[in-house]
């Protein structure tokens, strides 16, 4: 299996990439790590006439702290996310999620931007970035704009990003010191997409949950934010009963498609279980500081 024919362009910097996108964006594709796009091209699910390779743009890689935000270049690989001492300290849910994506070789090539922007509901970073209140910094011919991750996903492979635009950074408000976090992913085997997965981030004040985020992967056409479940926990003590109510509320918004990973009922059930586990794990971590 080899991809169909295309013309290859290596962008030298962001301006060059924007220029190439303006010229070829409508029938072209950006090439990041290539571990989603190339397999789709082999199967002719994607047949771009132009490939714009952005691997040579050093500005699009790296992880840094900027004021009260963490700024991640979209071309940062999953391996670099896992190894980042800064993220392990400030935003450990990202390395935790990245560790559950694919396998070591794929993580060496696959990028956070590729995963987050492809629009595949099976990808893990969208739900995690949504829970983190992250935003994408986007460049196009008209200049720069930002788009919140919450609301960015319109449908499978459909996002708020235009053909002529590229994401130059992922900006994450630095999570509070001592926050609880967990990304619980149920998958059949190494390298598989989630049957269901839940991201939980929370901040405790004594026994009270001050702030909660609950998001779900691969149980709908886009990543889902379980706002009703969040409301059930916010401002109260997370008792076993409330956690169960939150899990039920998360299950009620699931609308997964049937595939080899199981029936909609089974996937919804697993989403509930992942939600329970994620809340318990995040609570445990928050309590231990």
């Amino acid at each position: 299996m080899i991809p169909g024919r295309f013309e290859y362009h290596a962008a030298t910097d962001v301006d060059d990439a924007v220029r190439l996108l303006a010229e070829h964006g409508a029938d072209g594709k950006l090439l990041a790590g290539g571990h989603s796009l190339l397999p789709m091209m082999k199967l002719r699910f994607a047949e771009p006439a132009h490939i714009i390779d952005i691997n040579g743009i050093a500005d699009l890689r790296g992880i840094r702290e900027q004021g009260k935000a963490l700024v991640i270049g979209p071309m940062t690989t999953e391996s670099a996310i896992i190894d980042s001492e800064l993220l392990q300290r400030r935003c450990p849910v990202l390395p935790e999620a990245a560790q559950l994506i694919a396998d070591p070789q794929v993580r060496n090539r696959g990028t956070i931007g590729g995963d987050a922007l492809h629009g595949d509901p099976g990808n893990d970073h969208p739900a995690v970035l949504m829970a983190l209140d992250a935003e994408f910094v986007i460049r196009g011919r008209k200049g720069e704009r930002s788009e919140s991750v919450d609301g960015f996903y319109v449908g499978p492979y459909l996002t708020a990003l235009d053909d002529g635009e590229l994401v130059t950074a992922i900006r994450i408000p630095t999570p509070a010191e001592g926050h609880g976090y967990a990304y619980c992913k149920f998958k059949r085997k190494t390298g598989d997409y989630a049957t269901a997965a839940t991201c939980c981030l929370l901040e405790m004040e004594g026994d009270t949950c001050r702030r909660v985020r609950l998001t779900l992967t691969n149980v709908g056409p886009t990543p889902l934010r379980a706002t009703d479940a969040e409301a059930l926990l916010t401002g109260s003590e997370p008792t076993a009963e409330r956690i169960e109510q939150a899990a039920q509320a998360a299950m009620s918004i699931c609308n997964p498609a049937e595939d080899l990973r199981g029936s909609p009922e089974y996937k919804t059930h697993m989403a509930g279980e992942m939600t329970r586990r994620a809340i318990h794990k995040a609570l445990d971590r928050a309590r231990r500081g």
């Binding site: 290596a10 090439l31 290539g34 490939i51 070789q105 060496n108």
Partner: peptide, 18 residues
């Protein structure tokens, strides 16, 4: 799997040009 610039990579999913 081959090694490219110090990292293991699956060479069926990399363009030769890259």
């Amino acid at each position: 799997t081959v090694d490219i610039d110090g990292a293991s990579v699956k060479s069926c999913t990399v363009l030769a040009l890259q």
